[in-house]
Design a protein around this nucleic acid. Sequence first.
DNA 1: ATTTTGACGACGT
DNA 2: GACGTCGCCAAAA
Length: 111
Amino acid sequence: MKEADNFFDKVYTIARLIPFGSVTSYGAIAKYLGAARSARMVGWAMNNSHHQAKEVPAHRVVNRKGVLTGKHHFEGTSLMQQLLENEGIIVIENQIQDFERVFWDPTEGLP
DNA sequence: ATTTTGACGACGT
DNA sequence: GACGTCGCCAAAA
C-alpha cells in the first residue's frame, strides 16, 4: 500500500515535502499531480488535511499570489503568519514578501 | 437528486 | 494589465 494513491493523499505528501523556509502554491502542486486546473481540489484537500493523522504543513501552501488566503482556517487569526515568519518568511497583510524567493516548485524541487 | 460554494488558476475580454 | 468568466471536482445544504 503506497502512500499517495489518491489525489488528496498526494497533495498531503507534497505538502510535507516542502522544505523549511519555503512555500508553494496550490496550482503548483496540482500541476505536479497532472491536474493543473484542479487547484481547488488541492485547497479542498488542505481543508481535509485536518483529518489526516500526520500533520500537514498547510501553512506553507498559499495561492499563487503569495497571499495567505486560508489563514482563517488555522487556529487563531495569525497562526499561519506566525509559522511562516518563524521560518524566515516575511508576511505583511497576509501577503508573503519576496514570494519568488521562498517559492518552491515541486516540479523543480523534486527529482 | 440538484444547487451552491469553495485554502485556485487559467484564459478571455 | 485589471476585471470577468469558466473549469475542476468534491462536500455540504
